[in-house]
Design a protein around this nucleic acid. Structure first.
Length: 96
DNA sequence: AATATGACCATAC
DNA sequence: TGTATGGCCATAT
């Protein structure tokens, strides 16, 4: 019998994302790592699409660009928290 | 049940 | 610099 039961992926992701401080960002891969599933960055994006009540806009790609599917809304929310976002055409990037 | 599809990433060429 | 490939994981078909 397993003495410990790892949190379901969705719960682990929820915790990891909620732990990101206001005004900061983390990459999908970083969240996956923190959630105990290194390499599961794709799964993180899949979960963020469903999870409610989490600051999903603080999760960006490793190259600091924003996922095209949500880029516009995400850029607005990040800017509202004081995160500097640069727009290059249809392409958004968080300024380091 | 099997395959395809993403809000992805690292590596290889 | 850009494209390909394999790994990852929950849904949708």
């Amino acid at each position: 019998m397993p003495v410990t039961s790892p949190l379901p992926f969705s719960e682990a992701v929820r915790r990891a994302v909620r732990a990101i401080p206001r005004g900061e960002v983390r990459s999908y891969a970083q969240v996956a790592l923190y959630a105990g599933k290194p390499g599961a960055a794709r799964g993180v994006g899949r979960e963020l699409k469903t999870l409610k009540g989490v600051p999903w806009w603080r999760v960006i790609r490793s190259d600091r660009t924003l996922a095209p599917a949500v880029a516009h809304e995400q850029a607005r929310r990040l800017a509202a928290e004081g995160v500097q976002v640069k727009q290059q055409g249809e392409h958004f990037r968080v300024v380091p």
